[in-house]
Every structure is written in structure tokens, then in C-alpha cells.
Amino acid sequence: MTSKERVLSIFANKDADRMACFSGMGSVLTASLDEYGYKFPTVHGDAVKMANTAAFTYKATGMESVIVPYDMCVDAEALGCVMNAYENVNQLLYPTIKEKIIHNEEEMTTIAIPDKIWERGRYPVVTEALSLLKKDVGNEVPVVAWLLGPFTMAGQLMDLNDLFKLVFKKPDLVNGMLSVLTDLIITMAAKYREAGADIICIREMGATTDVLSPRNFKQVIDPHLGRIFANIGSPNFLHICGSTNIVMKNMQASGADALSVEIKNNLAKSREDIGYEPLLFGNIDAYSVLVLGTPEVVEKATIEAMEGSVDSVLPSCDIWPEAPVANVKAMVDTVKQYGAEKWARKNK
């Protein structure tokens, strides 16, 4: 069974020879930047560099997916925001938005998706990278593309303080804007699939319950996630990092094919809430374990996640690129070794 067949089977019928070890979040490693002689800030705007570095993680560690893009500014940039890639900074930094496009409530109501949005900003870079990955390794591993959820995306377009307060004060205004962004996400998911993505991951990290209450989640997150997952085709999954236990039922109700959570999620508690039927992925700490740990520490954490009832092992977040190849490989190898015997679904 190839990694591609395995991962797609898990999504399609919740069955395979073993669980898989893949991701829907950025998994670029500095080892690939060294290998190719790329500077990190230049990778985000260059389809060849993006595809090469994405494929490297699979080739060097056996991780069972290739994933683009890496940064969270792609959508905002296509909508007109200005991005900072930190080209003159020595340390490793992901791009951020330095100029937002929504400055007041009025602009929240007038935001519109430009025609042929997929030709704007770096969307063409991402779609080209997806096509390159499809050609390069698309028969062996699933190609994964991710998009921000509408609430997190809104936080890239406008001041977060204002957004959070308006969630409380004017939820209808917020929902109107999120609905427009939901249309964009549905459009781009289709474009990404057309370009070669096998799986779409929606990341709504702005809605973690470290930040937003379950009541607000129900008001301004639920409706849009429901519409997204009804319209982006399968396979797909929803990833929310941070604390998520008290919204697991909402996440399940989104209609996503699978749910992915991070280390702050108590897996046993999640299973109490959603049962053992839904696919649940997680939850290897992408920094403390994968970067700071040794291969032994990684193995132990991976076994814990498997014994905690995940259906596939995924990092909690974007892998911090400085993670040693040996650590990521240890995560993958541990899943290869124990991924059948420790798969709760198979052993009930």
C-alpha cells in the first residue's frame, strides 16, 4: 500500500493496513533549505522552491503527505493586504501582514471577492506548486493544501481587537463578512483540487477556545464551517490548534471528514464527547517534542497519541522548521511500527 492509498483509504472508509503519519499544516524543514541553498523568505513566492521543499520532507523522513503553502498571508495578500516576508532578518520568521485592508465597520460590509481571485497575489504560486508536487510525488503521497478558516482569515484582514469585540457587539456584521470569505474559501479549495490537491485542510486557529467562547463559536464559526465542508468535496479535514475540548461537538457538527487537534486537547475527553466513530487526528507537539526532543522522546509522544485513540498521527501545528530530520523520521517510523496494533478503531 502506498502512503497515498493509505491516507485516502483512511478518509474514504476509515480503514487501511495501519494508521498514517501525515499533516495538513506546513511541514517545511530547514534541512531542505540547507540542501537546496534557499533562504526561507524567498520560498513563499516561488513555486519551484515551495514544491522542492515540500517534497523534501516526504523524501527525507517518509512523512506521508506533501503540503503547501507555508505561511498564513496567501489569502489576505490576494485580497490586497501587504505582506512582510522579513527578507532582511537573520532568524527564521514566517511572513506576516503589515497592511490590512479593512479599517472600519463600513469596509466589513463592502468587502467583495475580485473576479478571478485565483490569479491574484501568490495564489498562482501555490497552485503551480501543487501541480509540480502532483507530477513529482503525486503517485506516492497525497498532496495536501490548506486554507485558513473564515474567522482566522478575517483576523488577517482587519484589526483583531475590533474583530473580537464585534463578535460580541455585532455578530451579524461579522457573519456577513465571514460569509463572503467562506465563498472565497470554497472557490479556492476547488482551484487547489484542480491544481492537484488530494486533500484540503481548513485551519481555523483563531477560533480556539483559548480565545473564543463556545457561545461565540456557535454564533460566528459553526455556520460558515458547515457551509465550507458541504461545498469543498472530500477528502477534507478541520484543524484547530489551542484548546478545543469544549467545542469538539461543534467541530464534529461542521461535517468535516476528520478532525485534527493539538496537544492541549485531551483525546480521551474528546472521545467521550464525539465517540469513536469520527476520524480524529493529532497531536504531536510541533516544537517541544519535534524540535527540542530526541528521537526517543518523539517515539514516546507518538505512542501516547496512538494509544490516545488518534486515527492518524499529525503534528499539533506547523512543524517548526528547525525540527531535526531524525525527529520527524522517528515520528513516522513509530507510526509504521505500531500504527496497526495501536489503532483503537481496529482493535475494538
Binding site: 481587537n161 473580537f164 469585540k165 460580541f168 477556545t209 480565545v211 473564543l212 467562547s213 461565540n216 469544549i246
Partner: peptide, 14 residues
């Protein structure tokens, strides 16, 4: 106690 979340805190702060 997860009674209040960030939006609530921001309004308290105001």
C-alpha cells in the same frame, strides 16, 4: 474558569 474569553476581556479592559 472559561466563563470569559478574549472578547469579554477586551470589553472589560475598555
Amino acid at each position: 474558569e472559561q466563563e470569559y474569553f478574549v472578547p469579554e476581556l477586551l470589553m472589560c479592559a475598555d
